[in-house]
Amino acid sequence: MKTVKSILIAYLFIHFTFVLMVNLMALSKFSDATERLNSFGYAFVKCIEKPEFINKMEASIGLYVNLTGVNRGYEFFSPNVYRGSVKLIFESDQGQRLDLFQSVESKMKFLTFSLYFNSNLKDKKRRDELLKSVCLRLFSKDEDLDEVHVYADIQLFDEIQYSFKDTYIEDKGKLLLTKIKKSYHETSSI
């Protein structure tokens, strides 16, 4: 009994050390955008910026934290929230809206994809890779589909302190991101 308890206590300590490290690593990534932090946050992130020993440990704890599902930090919607919405829209060349998923949960997952996509919106290479992959699947699902147009429907919001009822939403409208043709999976990015 004593041995079992000792093993479990040691395990508990190791597990939560790893959880702590994962979260510190996640927080240290905010150092890329310090203008988004308040003065306390700035000082804190500077303190934990690039902790070499944690970076080195990342690879060694990677498998464990992945298997236990604690590999992503818990900084949900932190430190700030994006001040707008970017909805990805897929349309055929006839202008018909293409729904990617059927179930509510899959649509939620698509939102996760969209958030990831938005954060890489300026990385044209990655952006096109992702869109091309989605379109390839759309082509294989619908043989009559020849071309897919991908739009980003962008809305930005003013800060509440500076908002006026009729003008707080800045509607940028549908921005054409790319047109992908079926024949050669050609991409003409905008």
Binding site: L27, R36, N38, G73, P79, N80, V81, Y82, R83, Q161
Partner: peptide, 24 residues
Amino acid sequence: FAGFGKMIGHDWLDGNAMWYVMNT
């Protein structure tokens, strides 16, 4: 950590986080 991450930014302290989230 969910709370700490929010505490080091601006939006959760001045209320804009909920404003943006609810609008979006």
